[in-house]
Structures are given as C-alpha cells and as structure tokens.
Amino acid sequence: NKASVVANQLIPINTALTLIMMKAEVVTPMGIPAEEIPKLVGMQVNRAVPLGTTLMPDKVKNYE
C-alpha cells in the first residue's frame, strides 16, 4: 500500500505548504502520493484542510 499526503495540522485556505504541515500515511481513498511532498512545498491550498485530512489534487492550486 502506498502512502498519501495527510495534513499534520489545520492548513488555512491559501496557505503555502511546508514540510512540517504534511505527513505520509496509508489512507483510503488515496490522495496525492507521499513521494510528491517535496514538489508540494510552496504550493498553496485552495481551501482549508483540517488536521488528519488527506490532501487530494483538487485541494492544491496548480497541482498536476
């Protein structure tokens, strides 16, 4: 099972992601793969992401 990116804290809307905000966890359904964490640093979320929520591609601005 592959790990996904999960919010390590509440991430407010329009916040630029940092390493400390994210952790890798095996979750269902799968979100953004954990190996993409370095790519996500500096990207902004387009909505608030509660603690423990899986980061889905549609929650990150300009994620492809």
Rank of each mutant, 00 (worst) to 15 (best):
A24T: 07
M21V: 05
P38N: 10
D58A: 08
A24W: 08
A7C: 06
R47N: 11
V41A: 01
L40G: 02
V6C: 07
Y63I: 03
I11D: 03
I37S: 02
N1E: 13
A34S: 10
V5H: 04
G52I: 05
I37E: 02
A7N: 02
K39D: 11
T28A: 12
M21H: 07
I11S: 02
V60G: 00
P38Q: 09
T28P: 01
L55G: 01
M21F: 05
I20E: 12
K59A: 15
V49F: 06
I20A: 14
V49K: 04
G52Y: 04
V49D: 05
V60T: 00
N14F: 11
K59G: 15
T54C: 07
L55D: 04
E64Q: 15
E25Q: 14
G42S: 01
Q9C: 15
A16T: 13
Y63T: 03
N46V: 14
P12Q: 08
I20Q: 13
M30L: 12
N14S: 06
I13E: 14
V26Y: 13
I32W: 03
V6S: 03
M43Q: 03
A7L: 04
A34Q: 04
V27D: 00
M21D: 02
Y63M: 01
T54L: 05
N14V: 06
K61V: 14
D58Q: 07
Q44S: 10
K23N: 07
L17Q: 00
L10W: 13
I32Y: 01
V27T: 09
E64C: 15
I37A: 04
A24L: 07
A24G: 10
G42C: 08
P57S: 06
T53I: 07
N62D: 13
A3M: 11
K2Q: 13
L10V: 07
I20K: 14
K59Y: 15
N1D: 14
G42P: 03
T53C: 14
A16K: 13
P38S: 10
L51F: 14
M56H: 10
E25H: 09
I13S: 10
L40C: 06
P33K: 07
A34V: 05
E35P: 07
M30C: 14
G31L: 05
V5G: 01
M56R: 05
V5E: 00
G52H: 05
A16Q: 12
E64S: 14
G31H: 04
D58V: 03
L55A: 02
M22S: 01
K61P: 03
M30S: 12
A34W: 07
R47E: 15
V49A: 03
E25W: 10
E25R: 13
T28F: 13
T54W: 04
N62K: 07
E25Y: 10
V45M: 03
K2L: 12
A3L: 09
M21A: 03
N8C: 11
N8Y: 07
T15P: 01
A3P: 12
P50G: 08
E35C: 15
P50E: 11
N46Q: 07
M43N: 01
M30R: 12
M30A: 13
P38I: 09
I20S: 13
A48Y: 09
N1I: 14
V41M: 05
T18D: 02
M22V: 04
I32M: 04
T15D: 01
P29H: 04
M22W: 05
Q44R: 14
T28I: 13
L51Q: 15
V5A: 09
T54E: 03
A7T: 06
A7H: 03
K39V: 11
V41K: 01
G31A: 04
N1M: 15
V60K: 01
T54I: 07
T54R: 01
V5N: 03
T15E: 06
I13W: 07
L10Y: 15
E35I: 13
L51K: 15
E36F: 12
A3E: 10
N8W: 07
K61Y: 10
N8P: 00
P57F: 06
V41D: 00
K59C: 15
I13Y: 08
L10P: 11
N1T: 14
E64I: 15
I13D: 08
V5T: 04
T15A: 10
L19D: 03
T15Q: 07
G52N: 09
K2E: 10
P38H: 10
S4K: 01
M43A: 05
I32V: 03
N1A: 14
A48K: 09
P38T: 10
P12H: 07
T15H: 03
V26S: 07
G31P: 00
V6M: 04
E36Y: 11
G31E: 02
N62F: 11
L40A: 02
V45I: 05
V41G: 00
T18K: 10
A7G: 03
L10K: 07
Q9T: 10
L19N: 06
I37V: 02
T15K: 06
P57Y: 09
A48F: 08
Q9L: 10
G31T: 04
Y63W: 12
M22Q: 00
I32C: 05
K2G: 15
P33F: 06
P50N: 07
Y63E: 01
N14E: 08
M43T: 02
T15M: 08
R47M: 15
T53Q: 14
K2Y: 14
L19W: 11
T54N: 03
L51I: 13
P12A: 08
L51W: 11
T54P: 07
L10R: 10
R47D: 15
S4R: 03
V60Q: 02
T54V: 10
T54K: 03
M21G: 00
Q9M: 14
P29M: 06
I11R: 02
A3V: 05
M43K: 11
I37P: 02
I37W: 05
L10E: 12
M43C: 11
I11V: 02
V6N: 01
E36R: 09
N62W: 10
P12M: 07
T15I: 09
I11P: 02
K39W: 13
S4F: 05
M56P: 00
E64A: 13
Q9E: 09
Y63V: 04
P33E: 05
V41F: 00
G31F: 02
K59R: 15
P12D: 06
N62A: 08
K23M: 08
T18I: 07
L19R: 11
G42L: 05
V45S: 03
I11A: 01
P57G: 07
V49R: 03
V45F: 00
P33V: 04
A16R: 14
V26I: 13
V45W: 00
T18L: 08
A16Y: 15
V27W: 06
V6F: 06
A24R: 03
P12L: 09
A16L: 12
S4L: 03
L19K: 09
R47W: 10
M43R: 08
N62Q: 09
A3Y: 10
P12V: 07
E35F: 12
P50W: 08
A24D: 05
L40T: 03
V5F: 06
L19I: 10
L17G: 01
A16H: 13
